[in-house]
Simulated assay, not measured.
Amino acid sequence: MAIMRDAAGPVAVKEVGSVLGPPVDVRGKLEPLRAKMYKLADRGWLCKLGDGRFAIAF
Rank of each mutant, 00 (worst) to 15 (best):
A2G: 09
I3G: 09
I3H: 10
M4W: 06
M4H: 07
D6M: 12
D6F: 08
D6K: 14
A7C: 05
A7P: 04
A7I: 02
A8I: 02
A8Q: 05
A8Y: 00
V11I: 10
A12F: 13
A12G: 13
A12K: 14
K14D: 06
K14G: 03
V16I: 10
V16T: 00
V16C: 00
G17W: 05
G17L: 05
S18R: 14
L20T: 03
P22I: 14
P22A: 10
P22E: 09
P23C: 01
P23A: 03
V24D: 04
D25C: 01
D25Y: 09
D25N: 12
D25K: 11
D25P: 02
V26F: 05
V26I: 12
R27G: 08
R27K: 13
K29P: 00
L30V: 11
E31C: 02
P32G: 01
P32S: 08
R34A: 15
A35K: 14
K36Q: 11
K36L: 08
K36W: 00
M37F: 07
Y38Q: 10
K39W: 07
L40T: 02
A41G: 08
A41I: 11
D42R: 07
R43Q: 12
R43P: 01
G44D: 06
G44S: 07
L46Y: 03
L46S: 03
L46G: 04
C47G: 02
C47F: 03
K48P: 07
L49S: 11
L49F: 06
G50M: 04
G52T: 04
G52V: 00
R53S: 15
F54T: 04
I56H: 04
F58S: 08
